[in-house]
Nucleic acid binder design. Structure first.
Lengths: 342, 342
DNA sequence: TTGAAAGCGCTAACAG
DNA sequence: CTGTTAGCGCTTTCAA
C-alpha cells in the first residue's frame, strides 16, 4: 500500500498521458466522446493500482462546490435533535453530500459563529434549526445567496424555505385529547421565547380549551428560561399544583421540559395520571419506559429530515423559484399518561 | 453587505499592496518583523470593510491541513454516542477544529466507506468508536500514517492510541454490588461480539461471581445479535426467567440492551427490583425516570471525549512517540433497581 | 518592509 | 481522441 499522496499527475505520468485525460476518466466523463475506450481502461487500471484517492479539497476549490451541508441544531445530545441529525445524515449521504453538524445551544451568537465557520469551510448550503434572535443569520444567508432550509422552526416574517410540523394543530390536538378524556384544568409549560413555533404551540393549546368552553387561565401557562430550566420548572410546577385549584393535567411543549418536569413530579410524589395527566412533545425512549407511558405528539422526524435535505438539494441544483414550504402533522400517540379520568 | 467572494487579492488591490502582505497580516504573522505597523492596520481595516472571509479550502489545499477531525461512531441517535459526540464537538471547537461525524451502525463496511469519504475530504485525523472487524480500517490508517485515536473500544492486538473505560473492572463492580446486596443468580446480557470491550465486560462479571463463591452458569450469559435485538432479547430474557431456577438479577452491558430489555420486563410484568435486580451500562435520562431508577455504571463521557481530542491533537502537532493509552474507571451509581434484597 | 511568483490538486476551455 | 494551460485562493520562498 502506497503512502497515499497519489495525484492525478502521478497517474498521468505512469500512463504517459496528460492530467486532463485522467481527470476526464476519473470523473466518468469519457462518455462524452472525450477519451478512447482502451485509454480509459488503462487509466482506470493504473489508478486502482496506485490506489488513487481524489483530493476533494482541490476539486472543490476548483469548481466551487464542496458537496457539504452545514447542519445547525440546538444540541446534538438532545435525542430529538440527535434523531433529526441521523435522518439528515443518512439522506445526505444517499445524495452524495457530507454534513457538518454544529450545536448552537439555542444561542444566537453561537449559531452565528458556527455559521461563519461553516461558510468559511465553503459548505454549499445549510439546514438550520434556528434559535431565538436568528433573524440576523437568516438575513445574512439571504444576502450572500447561500441556500438554506429552516427545519422544525421558521420565521413567518422572512420568506424562506422551511420544513416544519404544524405546531398549533399538534398542540390543539393534545389539549382536545386531554379534555375529551375528562381533564379540565390543563397547564402548559413552554420555554420563554418569542419564537413562532413556541407561540403556535401555546395558541393551539389555548384555542382547544376555548373551543371546549374552558377559559384558559393565564396562571396555567408557564414559561421557563431555557438556561435555568431545572430551577424554573420547579417553580412553575409548584405554582400550577400548590394552589386552591390545582391543575389536573399538564402539557410539556418540548422533550427537555418533559424530562425535567417528570423528574420533579417524581420528587413531589405526584402520580401520573391519577394526580396529573400528561401529554408531551418531543420523543424518546423515556416516554416508553416511564412507569406510566407518556402520551406524546409524535413528529415525523424521518419525513422532516428527508424533506429538508431534498428541498435543499433542489436549491443547490439551481432551482431559484418561490420559497418552498412544507408542513406536516404530528400524530397523537395516546398512552397511559392521559387515559380517561374515572 | 457585499456579495461575498472577497479574496486576498481584492484586499491587496484595494490597499495597493501584494497578496503576500495581506496574507501575513490576516494570519497574524506581522509580528515576525514582516509587516509595518501602519500597513498592518490599514490592511486590517480594509479587510473588515470588505467583510473578508478566508477561504479555508484554499488555505488547506495549500498547507495540507484542514483542521478537521473525522468522528466515526456507531449511531448518533443513540444517547451514549450523542453525548460523546457533543463532548468531542465542544472540545474540538475549543481547539480550532471542526468535526465531521459519521454513523457506522456497527457495520465494518459502512465504517470503511465512511473513513474513505473523510480521508478524501482530507481530515487531519480520526476519532473512532470502532465496530467489529475494523482491523482492516485500523491497519489502513496506520499504513497511510493518518493519526487516529480509538475511543471507548480498542483492539489489544493493534498498537494504537486509545481512550477507554476499564470495562472488566466496571463489570466486576456491577456484579459485586449485586452480590453484596443479596442477589445470587445474576444474568448478563451482552451483544454477540468478539470485540475486546464486550469480552472484558463478560470477564469482569464472571470473575466477580467466582470471587464471591458463585459459579457463573453458562446459561446466565446471553449474547444477542445487534441487528435483531428486539426479538433476540425477548428470547434471552425468557430463557433467563422461565426456568426452574430463574435469575434474580440482570446486568445489561449497553444502553440499547437495557432499553429493550426493560421494555420487555414491563411486558412480562416483572417488577424491578422485587422480581429482578438490575444494573446497566450506558447512561441516559431513561434510567432516572424509570419507575424504579436504574443503577448503572457511569462512564465519564466528558473525560473520555476531551481526552480523545487532546490525545489526537497532540499527534496532529507532530508528536510521534509511543502509542498513548488512557483508561478511566466507571463509577457505580447505585439506585433503587439494585437495592438490598429483603 | 515589501513584492513576485511558484504551486497545492484539480477542472475545463481551447487548441490541435 | 488527446494535450496545454489558466486558474480556484492561499502561503511562503526568494529576491529586492
Amino acid at each position: 500500500m502506497k503512502s497515499d499522496k497519489v495525484s492525478l499527475s502521478d497517474i498521468a505520468k505512469a500512463a504517459g498521458v496528460s492530467t486532463a485525460l485522467v481527470s476526464y476518466v476519473m470523473s466518468g466523463k469519457e462518455k462524452e466522446g472525450r477519451v478512447g475506450q482502451e485509454m480509459a481502461n488503462r487509466i482506470r487500471e493504473i489508478a486502482k493500482e496506485l490506489n488513487y484517492q481524489p483530493n476533494l479539497l482541490a476539486k472543490s476549490l476548483r469548481n466551487g462546490r464542496t458537496n457539504t451541508i452545514g447542519l445547525i441544531i440546538a444540541d446534538i445530545s438532545n435525542p430529538f435533535f440527535a434523531n433529526i441529525a441521523r435522518e439528515v445524515e443518512d439522506e445526505s449521504r444517499r445524495n452524495g453530500y457530507t454534513i457538518i453538524i454544529g450545536s448552537s445551544d439555542e444561542d444566537a451568537d453561537k449559531a452565528w459563529d458556527l455559521m461563519n465557520v461553516l461558510i468559511n469551510r465553503q459548505v454549499d448550503g445549510f439546514i438550520i434549526v434556528s434559535s431565538e434572535n436568528s433573524g440576523r443569520l437568516v438575513e445574512h444567508l439571504q444576502n450572500i445567496r447561500l441556500p438554506f432550509v429552516l427545519l422544525d422552526r421558521h420565521f413567518p416574517e422572512y420568506n424562506t424555505d422551511f420544513v416544519v410540523t404544524n405546531n398549533a394543530k399538534a398542540s390543539h390536538e393534545a389539549g382536545s385529547h386531554l379534555i375529551q378524556n375528562g381533564y379540565r384544568r390543563i397547564g402548559f409549560i413552554a420555554y420563554k421565547s418569542a419564537m413562532f413555533h413556541v407561540k403556535e404551540r401555546i395558541r393551539g393549546y389555548q384555542e382547544a380549551l376555548q373551543e371546549h368552553g374552558i377559559e384558559p387561565k393565564a396562571t396555567w401557562l408557564k414559561e421557563v428560561q431555557f438556561n435555568a430550566i431545572e430551577s424554573e420548572i420547579r417553580t412553575a410546577i409548584d405554582e400550577l399544583v400548590q394552589t386552591e385549584e390545582p391543575i389536573d393535567a399538564i402539557i410539556f411543549s418540548t422533550y427537555g421540559l418533559a424530562v425535567n418536569g417528570l423528574k420533579y413530579l417524581n420528587e413531589l410524589r405526584l402520580r401520573v395520571p391519577e394526580d396529573l395527566g400528561v401529554v408531551s412533545f418531543g420523543q424518546a425512549e423515556v416516554f416508553d419506559l416511564y412507569y406510566c407511558p407518556i402520551s406524546y405528539m409524535r413528529q415525523p422526524i424521518d419525513v422532516l429530515g428527508k424533506k429538508a435535505v431534498s428541498m435543499l438539494i433542489t436549491r443547490l441544483s439551481g432551482e431559484s423559484g418561490e420559497a418552498q414550504h412544507f408542513t406536516v402533522d404530528a400524530q397523537l400517540i395516546a398512552r397511559e399518561s392521559s387515559r380517561p379520568k374515572v
